[in-house]
Each structure stands twice: as C-alpha cells, then as structure tokens.
Simulated assay, not measured.
Amino acid sequence: MRALIALAAITAIAGCVAAVPIDRPSDYTAPSKLSSCRVDLPQDWKDQLSRNKTEAGSHEQVTIVGANENAATTLVKTTRNRATELVLRDSKKRQQVMAVQDDAQLFGVEFDGRWVTFSTSPSPSDRTTTTYAWDSRNDGAPVRIGDSGAVVHNGKAAWSDSSGVHVYDLTKKKDRVVGQGKEPVFLGDAVMWLQDGRFRAEAALPEQLKNAKPAESAASDGRTVVWTEGDALRGWREGWTEPRELAEIKTLPRTEGILFPRVSGDFVSWQSESSYVTDIRSGATMHTTEGAYWLEVHGGALTQQGRRITAAAPLSALSALSRC
C-alpha cells in the first residue's frame, strides 16, 4: 500500500492549472438558465442512481470522478478530515492510486478504462501543478508526465502548456509537441485543440469543423466533440453533415456561461451555476432541483453528488430524454 504523500514530498514545477469544476456546496442548485428544450429528471434515472448509491459518513466526502465504459469500475475520491485518497474500485478489489493531505491538492482526474491521469498541487494555496499517469494493470506508483492537467484516450495523454500542445504515449513513455494552442481533445486517435477561436489539428481537420468558433471549453469522448460557442453548446460527430446546437442558455440575466462540458456516448453534462445533462439524440436537456443533484458523465457512468450521497448509474441503463 502506498503511504500518504506529504506536502513536502510532492515535487511541483510551474505550469498551467487545468480547469476544474467550481467547488460549490453540495446542497446548492440554481434556477434553470435554459432557453432550449428542458425536461424533468426521468424516473428510471432516479431509480438507477438510487440502486447504485453510496452514503458517506458525517465527516466524509465521496465523489466519483471516473468510470470505465460500462461503469463497472469507478474512480472514487474520498476525503476524511481533509486527507484525500483516490481509489480505483470494482466488485472484486480496490487499488489506491494516490493519497494527499488536502482535498484541494488532487484534481483533474481522467480515466480511459486502463490509464488514469490526474494532477496535484503542493498545497491549497499553491496551485502549481504536477500531472501524473497511473496504469491500473500494473498497479505501480504513479509516474509524473507533465506540469498541466491532461486528457487521456486509448493510452495517450494530451495537455497544453507554454511549450505547446503535448501528446504523450503512456506505453512508450514518449512526449511530443504537435502545435500551439490549448484545450486539446481526442477525436478518434487524432488530437485537436483550440487556437485563436478555431479548431486546429495535427492531421487534417474534419471539413465540418473548419468554420466552428469554439470559445473556452471543448471536450470529446473520442467519437463526439462538443464545445461552447456564445450562449450555446454545440457538437459534431462523424457522419453528421454539420455541427448541431445541443443546448442554449438565456442571455440575461447571466452570471456565468456554459462551463466544463463532458461528453460520453449520447449524453453531455455541463455546468452553468448548477448541473445539466443534454441528450444529443433528442436535443433535450435535464436540469433538476430535486435533492440538490449534481450530475456529470464520466466514461460509461452518470454520476451524482450531493447531500452525503454519491452514485454512478450505467449510461446504457438510462432512457433517452424525450423531445419537447
């Protein structure tokens, strides 16, 4: 078992900090800001989340931050008395990935079903970032790969820093810089990124994305890429003749736009003061005020956080959201 890593033991080199969801109280839910199609939380979603929930203790916070494609294996971040542990678990075993002394030191966790990438900082007040990769098959110690939060897909990690956009082969342990920009995402095994309000790519950029004008946020599950454009969430996947508008929020009153999109299969989760889930197929979006849910998609799971309850329901078990 790996020992708890003390603050002084974390070697950190100056770099860019990955965007992480805003830390709001778990019982906070803002009014809906949708101007596009809105539907209620389906009953079968409630049932699935209820069947797959974990109750935290009074001095404990448990958050599911990753899952494999069928949600049978999950990455769980557990904080007890501020000390935080990142654990990979399934029905048969648990594997400790990393432990730190304060919850704010561990962030930016991603999982592709085998490889885990995550970032740490020396202390809550010092956000200098060190990013690690960990191979769940070998269960060895995490290996430092860079100084900025990464995304991971099929054994490759990508991130951006002052040197440019990096693509790191986790098996071969080889890093290369493929261009200048930020917010890299994988589409298939190819890497795209944002530069000057446009998508760029190492290989040929799909024709349908050449006129896209992404703002600050983009995400992909390898098949579908989503991004923010003004007050809208837009997306594209292979086979579509053009990008589609997936959701839109009201222009006024507004204190923040669409943030932190995550896509998995036919579902996109995102935030705008509270959490939303959009169904790509119907164009409907779910925003709930029930039980102060915070919902996100991770791999093959819809995850819930709120009121000392955490849950991960398989996306494959959820009904489609109805069209308006």
Rank of each mutant, 00 (worst) to 15 (best):
T289D: 14
G265W: 06
E296P: 07
T74S: 07
P206Q: 04
G299I: 02
Q305S: 13
G306D: 07
D231A: 13
T11Q: 15
M98A: 10
A301H: 12
L295I: 07
A67R: 00
D169W: 01
W240R: 09
N52Q: 09
I64Y: 06
G149R: 13
K213T: 14
V167A: 00
S217P: 10
R244Y: 13
G155A: 00
L259A: 14
G164F: 00
N211D: 15
P184R: 01
P243L: 05
L34A: 04
E248Y: 04
R237S: 09
W227N: 02
A218W: 00
S275V: 04
E242T: 13
A203C: 06
R244W: 12
A212T: 07
P25E: 05
S148E: 03
S160H: 07
P184W: 01
F107T: 09
L318R: 00
T74I: 15
V100E: 08
R307Y: 09
L315E: 06
S148Q: 02
K77E: 15
A6R: 13
T128I: 09
P184Y: 01
K172L: 10
A219D: 11
E245W: 04
V191W: 01
V143H: 01
K92E: 15
D40K: 10
Q208G: 02
L318S: 01
S136L: 03
T84I: 08
Y28C: 08
E60N: 09
K213Y: 03
D266I: 06
I22F: 11
K92A: 14
A6T: 10
T74F: 00
D139R: 15
L252P: 03
V76H: 06
S125A: 14
M286G: 03
A201G: 06
P122K: 03
K93N: 12
G57I: 05
E273G: 07
E296I: 07
T117D: 02
G164V: 00
F199N: 03
M98K: 10
D196E: 15
A83E: 14
G179V: 00
A292H: 14
G57L: 05
P25F: 02
C37F: 08
T29E: 11
S123F: 03
A284C: 02
D169C: 03
R82D: 15
G306Q: 06
Q101M: 14
S50V: 11
L170S: 09
L252S: 14
V97S: 04
G230P: 04
W294T: 15
M192W: 05
R200L: 08
A72R: 14
A104F: 10
L75A: 04
E110P: 06
R89C: 08
D40V: 07
K174N: 07
D266A: 09
V151P: 05
Q96F: 05
Y132N: 07
R127I: 12
W45E: 05
